[in-house]
Each structure stands twice: as C-alpha cells, then as structure tokens.
Design a protein around this nucleic acid. Structure first.
Lengths: 318, 318
DNA sequence: TTATTTTGTTGAAACGTTTCTATATGTATA
DNA sequence: TATACATATAGAAACGTTTCAACAAAATAA
C-alpha cells in the first residue's frame, strides 16, 4: 500500500505539502496541487482511514444498530436515514448483534442511531459517557446525553381503539409483542386509555413476540376457546398476519366473525385477503428526520425528544 | 476519553504492561492483569479502534455493500453472513451507495462482500490492487484478486423453462430486469438455451428494471396487445407480482389465460393469489457459505468461484 | 557459589495521517 | 536599499495503540 510518504517521495516534496494538496488547502497553488494529485493517482494512493481517524479524532461515519436484517420495518427507515446522511457526505453503516456492540465500544463512528432492544439501557447509559450523539428509536431513555425519537404508539393505538369501539366491537383482546419493550408497552397503554374512557376493560390478553409464528400459535389457542373475543388488536402486523392465516384456515371469517388490526403497515398487509387495517408510519421520511436531527447534534445543537405520529389505515380486517 | 496512558498512570505501571494485560498476554501474571483490567473499567477506558487499526493494519471488520435496503432479497442473506461472521468474532457492517465507496476506499474493513450493481467493475478492479479479499455476488469478474460467488441463474432458468415447455406453453416471453446486469443476462441465457433445444424462439421480450412498478407498466402494455404471449417468464418475483396485479385487475386470469413465473421466491410470492411459481435460493445458507469462504480467504487460502444452485418452486401461477 | 534461565516490567519505535510552527524565497511598500 | 509582507514549502509533534528489544530481579541449574 502506497502511503502519503510514497507520494511525497514521488513528487519530490514534503509530506505536509502532499497532505495540504490532497485536502485542497488554499496555501498550495493549483498547479502543484494538481501535479501532486496526479502522482497520487498514478501510484494508487488512498489515504488510510485509521491514521486519519486517529489524528482527527473522528470518523465521518454514522452507525445504525438494528436488531436484525429480517424485519420488513427497517428497510425504508434505513433508506431514509442514508438518503439524508449521504447529502452531507457522511458514511452510514448498519450492524446487528455483537457487531453493533463492537462498533459502539470502539467508537468507529461519530454518532449512532439505535433500534435494537437487545442493547440494554445500562450499556447505552455507560456508553453515552464516552460516545455522543446517540439517538434511540426503540425506547424512552431519560439521559442527558441520549436523544429519544420514538413513535407515538400510545396516541396511535388510542385512536385505533376508539375507531374500533365506534364500530361496535365490545370484547377486545390485545395481542402483546415482546413483553417489556417500549413499543409493546406503549401500544397497550393506548388501548387501555381508550377502553377506560369508555368504561370498558380489556377482554383478554395474548402473549406473542412480534413474529408471525407467535401469531400462529396464538391463533391456534383462540380456536379452542369457547368464549372468543370479537376483536383482536395486535402489537404489530406480522403477528396479525400469522393469526389471520390460521384463523381463516379454521373457517373463522374476518371481519365477519372476528375483527383484527395490526401496527406498522408493512407491505404484505395490503396484499393479504382481507387487507389488514393498521397504523402506518412513513419510515422513509422518519429516517430522514432522524438523520437531520443527528446531524444537528453533531454540530453541537441540543435537541428535544420527538414522537413520530402514525396514521390510521382502515382497510377490510375490522 | 480515557486512554491507555491514563490506565497506566492509575495503575502505576507502564503503557506496555497495560496493553499486554488487556490483551491477555501470558507474560503478565493473572493477578496484575486483573488489577489492571479492573482499573481500566473503573476509569471507563475503551481502546480506540483508530489507533489499534493503524498499528495492527487491520480492522477485524467485514463490509457488505448492497445496492439498497429496500429489497426483500437481501435480508436473509445478510443474516446468514452475519451469523457466520459473528461466530468468528468478526464485526459485520452493511452499507449502500456512496457510503460503500467510502468504506472501500478507506479500507475500513479487512474484506468485502459486494452485491451492488452500482459499483463498477472498473472500480473493483482498481480497488482489488490494494484491498483483499473481495467476493462479488452480483457479477462474474475475471480477476485474480476477486472471488465470484454467484447464483446459477442459467441453470435454474433452463430448468424452469423446460418445465414450462413440458406444460405445453408455446408463446413464451421474457420480462427483463435491469438490462446489463449479470443476473438478468444469465437468466435470459438459461431460457434461450432451453428454447433452442426445443427448436423454439423467444416469443417476445419486455424490458423492466426488477421493480414492481416496472412490472405494472409492462402489464399495462400487455393488456393492449392483440396477440399476447401465453407465458411470462420474469427476471424476478417483484416484477412478476406487479404484472399479476395489473393483469388480474384487467380480468386476465392466471394461470388460465396466461402463465407467469418469477425468480428469488421472496416471501410475498407465497401469499399472492395465485401463489407465484419461482426459483428459491436459500439466502441464509448461501450467506453462511459466503462468510465461510471469506474467512478462509482472510487466512490466505485460495478459493474457486462457486455457483449457488436454486430450486424450482412450482405453485399455482403457471 | 556462580552461571543460566525464567519471569515480569519497561522504554521506545512504529503505524499514516494532520496541522502547528518555522523558514526560505519572492514581491510589494516605504 | 531596507523593511515588511505574502507565498510556498518543510520539519516535527501528536493522535493511541502494539510490539520489539532491553533489562532487572527472581528462580533454577550447575
């Protein structure tokens, strides 16, 4: 690998001159700068990020940590974040699992966006002492150095539940996702709030883990029950889809025999028969918003926590 | 940020001792090592990746460059790669677009897996002089320093076409994806080979770009045609799905009036009515295989190019 | 006892940049 | 002509690690 030293030698000048030239410093006249750039090209020189990062104490890179690549929810969000970051010449990098931990600890990025429930609050709090800025999307964390940008689950579910109630449903059950997650808890709260205002109680609770398979299992249980709910509000679309599939196989008609709703409005949901009613988040735009906020934080601004609003998409499933 | 220097000072020993202790070098007795580790923890020390990478001349990181996060094809592949890499303590990082270019040029990774048609052959050839190993998934590149691991599109499409022919279809059209890509070209070749062997010619060609929307546009054209094909072999599932949607809206029944097939077997395809026949690639396993190969390359092994076989999934669409 | 090996520790060089400061040369000003 | 100033270049320190080579002290061998 050619280094800046080799360029200097080939160009017959000092290292510092090369560095200035390559970084378009005005103190180097254009002719020499061009000559040096050409030589650098010829000997195939590319600056080492490691050396540069060490000296400059930054990386010009943003890390996005997600819980897995399998989810349909992330795609648009990532594209949105990347789209915005690219405009500002930042490099975006995505990781999961242990890779995220490594990247974070090693400070291989200038900032991070976290949407991975497997990363503990404790780890983040600890990390935030050395590493800033951090934006979390998947929890509400009360910490000076960490910004929260979440989805307003409570409000969305509140609105959905009100709509459900207005259609005459009475025996409303909630299908939980992973129990202690921010998303699950706040979604449930929204339902309860609406119920309470109408002097109703939750009819039943089922416990899944946000996956389609857990939805299928729950549906198998429901089939056995003698007294069934008339409406299933699900923690997300994937579970709802799994439930619908099994229910329909067992001749429970949706929405005639039982209503059902999801959350996220993933692409699949509009293809299913019946089309699933859900809460839509424009993840691309949200991603852009998140990136913009991060960029401002990087410049030293202070930003408030935000809650992204979803819109109710009423289709055919209740 | 605490540095190794601070740890040394706090522990009352030299920098090198700290370094050895933290890296579990056997020359430091366990008691002192533990004492030093504890102190490092207390003052919140985390080693700087930049400094370490610079000195060690590696990063313990693998980059996967993909063309966008929106595609349903990548998810499993990425999970597969990550799963395998994590077992070997490597960090995996995913990027798109300009971010990939940056990462590659800066050598922020020890190796790269490329599946992004927007990265030119020329760029890769140039890069490969300085950067190794590189595995490309989305093209066939004849270069000493670059490994090819592709899907055997030709064979898969050949088999599919033969099956189509055996069902009696005669007027077979191909729906192209992005024209000059490896995937599109080799998929088309497979069809042509089968056709030729049966003394047939392609009935018609349509030109899309692998997206659902391009499929929709093509379908709109087909509707207008007085002489229609009886079978549409599509370059991928997404286009096939788009076509089916529009065709059905216009009362063209599938498979009764026209047969159709896809490629990739994305999740959606088994939910659509009628269920789409396609070629399935087990992307998770393929990802693991790719990672394993990369790991071997990293150790200096030489590896042959491979072609991953797909399996024909025959459902309801032809 | 002396010689030799082992064990634990250290100093310093090196990795490849950026950037501060110094210096040489040339040009404008008095 | 001397002085000041601008312009172009160079030298060297610094970033935070790893690791080689050196060495003292302790343990073992002769």
């Amino acid at each position: 690998m050619a280094t800046i030293k080799d360029v200097a030698k080939a160009a017959g000048c000092s290292i510092s001159t090369v560095s200035y030239a390559l970084n378009n410093d005005k103190r180097i006249p254009e002719v020499t700068a061009n000559r040096i750039k050409k030589i650098a090209d010829e000997i195939n020189y590319l600056p080492s990020a490691a050396a540069r990062n060490l000296k400059k104490q930054n990386t010009n890179t943003i890390l996005v940590a997600i819980s897995n690549f399998g989810g349909p929810v992330y795609n648009e969000l990532l594209d949105g974040i990347h789209n915005e970051l690219a405009k500002h010449e930042y490099t975006m990098v995505v990781s999961t699992g242990a890779s995220s931990d490594n990247m974070l600890k090693q400070r291989t990025a200038d900032g991070a966006i976290i949407s991975d429930i497997n990363i503990s609050d404790k780890f983040l709090r600890q990390l935030s002492k050395n590493f800033k800025p951090i934006i979390v999307l998947d929890r509400s964390l009360n910490n000076q150095n960490i910004n929260n940008m979440t989805i307003d689950n409570l409000k969305a579910m509140y609105l959905l539940t009100q709509d459900v109630l207005s259609k005459g449903y009475k025996k409303i059950a909630y299908v939980h996702g992973v129990k202690d997650t921010y998303d699950n808890k706040t979604r449930f709260s929204g339902i309860q709030k609406a119920l309470r205002e109408n002097n109703l109680e939750i009819f039943k609770e089922y416990f899944g883990n946000f996956t389609k398979d857990s939805g299928k299992e729950i549906a198998s249980k429901i089939i056995e029950e003698s007294i069934k709910p008339d409406m299933l509000i699900c923690g997300n679309d994937e579970m709802a889809l799994g439930i619908m599939e099994v229910l329909q196989e067992n001749n429970i008609k949706i929405p005639e025999n039982m209503g059902i709703s999801g959350f996220d409005d993933i692409q699949l949901s509009s293809y299913f028969t019946p089309k699933l009613s859900s809460i839509k988040i424009n993840h691309f735009e949200w991603g852009q918003k998140i990136a913009k906020t991060l960029l401002r934080l990087l410049k030293g601004a202070t930003e408030k926590s935000t809650k992204e609003l979803g819109t109710l998409i009423i289709r055919e499933s209740y």
